[in-house]
Structure formats: C-alpha cells, structure tokens
Simulated assay, not measured.
Amino acid sequence: MPKKHDNEASTRRAPKGHFVVYVGKELRRFVVPTSYLKNPIFQQLLEKAADEYGFNSQKGIVLPCDEPTFQRVTELLA
C-alpha cells in the first residue's frame, strides 16, 4: 500500500525506488514504488492523467481518480 504523507512532507523527495503521485480533489500525496510502472492497470491511470492534465503539470503527477479508488488499485498491485 502506498505511503501517505502530510503537507510538511510534500516538499521532500521520494525515497530511491519510489515516486510521488497526487490523488483526489484534495490532491493527497502518495509515495509509490517504481515497480508500479510495469503494471498495465497503473499504466492506464498514467495515460488517463496525461490525457486529462498533460505532461506540464506544475503539481507533479496527478492521477484522475478519487482516493478510495486509488487505494483499491494499489492494494491489488501490492
């Protein structure tokens, strides 16, 4: 399951082997393992993010789903 960080931690970099995504209306920050990039389900989320937000988002990688859906997806990937 991805780690959720509070707002103070949002300025820190992700640990090696991980990256940050933002999810939901609140743009909650999650740190996820890079191994997720190999998964077709996660790749679809990234493709939808690119279609919806483009590649020049100032906020980083914003995934177009709500937090509960994201958590269910990541539970399947873990």
Rank of each mutant, 00 (worst) to 15 (best):
P2L: 11
K4P: 00
H5Y: 14
D6T: 11
A9S: 13
A9V: 03
S10K: 10
T11A: 12
R12G: 00
R13S: 13
A14W: 04
P15M: 11
P15S: 12
G17Y: 07
G17F: 08
H18Y: 15
F19H: 12
V20S: 03
V23A: 07
G24F: 07
K25P: 03
K25S: 13
K25I: 11
E26G: 07
E26C: 07
L27P: 00
L27Q: 15
R29Q: 12
R29H: 13
R29K: 14
F30C: 02
F30K: 08
V31S: 14
V32T: 04
V32Q: 06
V32G: 04
T34R: 13
T34I: 13
T34S: 10
T34Y: 05
S35K: 12
S35C: 05
Y36W: 15
N39I: 02
N39M: 03
P40D: 09
F42P: 00
L46A: 01
E47P: 00
A49I: 06
D51Y: 10
D51K: 13
D51E: 15
E52G: 02
Y53H: 14
G54C: 10
G54E: 03
G54P: 09
F55W: 08
F55P: 01
N56F: 10
S57C: 15
Q58V: 12
Q58G: 05
Q58F: 11
G60H: 09
I61E: 02
V62Y: 01
V62A: 00
L63V: 08
D66C: 07
E67K: 09
T69F: 15
F70I: 07
F70W: 12
Q71A: 04
T74C: 15
L77M: 14
